Simulated scan of single mutants.
Amino acid sequence: MEHSNSLAPLTETHVGIAPKQTHERRAAYLQCTRADGTQVFGVGIDNDVATATVKAVLSAASCA
Results as ranks from 00 to 15, higher is better:
Met1Asp: 07
Met1Trp: 03
Glu2His: 06
Glu2Trp: 01
Ser4Trp: 04
Asn5Tyr: 07
Ser6Leu: 03
Ser6Gly: 05
Leu7Phe: 04
Leu7Thr: 01
Leu7Arg: 04
Ala8Gly: 11
Pro9Asp: 08
Leu10Ser: 06
Leu10Met: 14
Leu10Thr: 06
Thr11Phe: 07
Thr11Ser: 03
Glu12Gly: 00
Thr13Gln: 01
His14Tyr: 04
His14Leu: 08
His14Phe: 06
His14Trp: 00
Val15Gln: 12
Val15Ser: 11
Val15Ile: 14
Val15Cys: 09
Gly16Val: 06
Gly16Phe: 05
Ala18His: 15
Pro19Trp: 03
Lys20His: 10
Lys20Thr: 15
Gln21Gly: 09
Gln21Ser: 14
Thr22Ala: 12
His23Gly: 11
His23Gln: 15
Arg25Tyr: 13
Arg26Ile: 12
Arg26Val: 14
Ala27Arg: 11
Ala28Ser: 15
Ala28Asn: 08
Leu30Gln: 03
Leu30Ile: 07
Leu30Pro: 03
Leu30Lys: 01
Leu30Met: 15
Cys32Met: 14
Cys32Gly: 02
Thr33Tyr: 01
Thr33Met: 04
Arg34His: 00
Asp36Cys: 05
Asp36Gly: 00
Gly37Arg: 02
Gly37Trp: 02
Gly37Asn: 01
Gly37Pro: 01
Thr38Trp: 02
Gln39Ser: 10
Gln39Thr: 10
Val40Thr: 08
Phe41Ser: 00
Gly42Tyr: 06
Val43Gly: 07
Val43Leu: 09
Val43Ala: 05
Gly44Asp: 06
Asp46Lys: 09
Asp46Ser: 15
Asp46Thr: 06
Asp46Gly: 09
Asn47Ser: 15
Asp48Trp: 11
Ala50Asn: 14
Ala50Tyr: 12
Val54Ile: 13
Val54Gln: 07
Val54Pro: 07
Val54Asp: 08
Lys55Asp: 10
Ala56Gly: 13
Leu58Lys: 14
Leu58Pro: 02
Ala60Pro: 14
Ala61Cys: 11
Ser62Asn: 13
Cys63Pro: 00
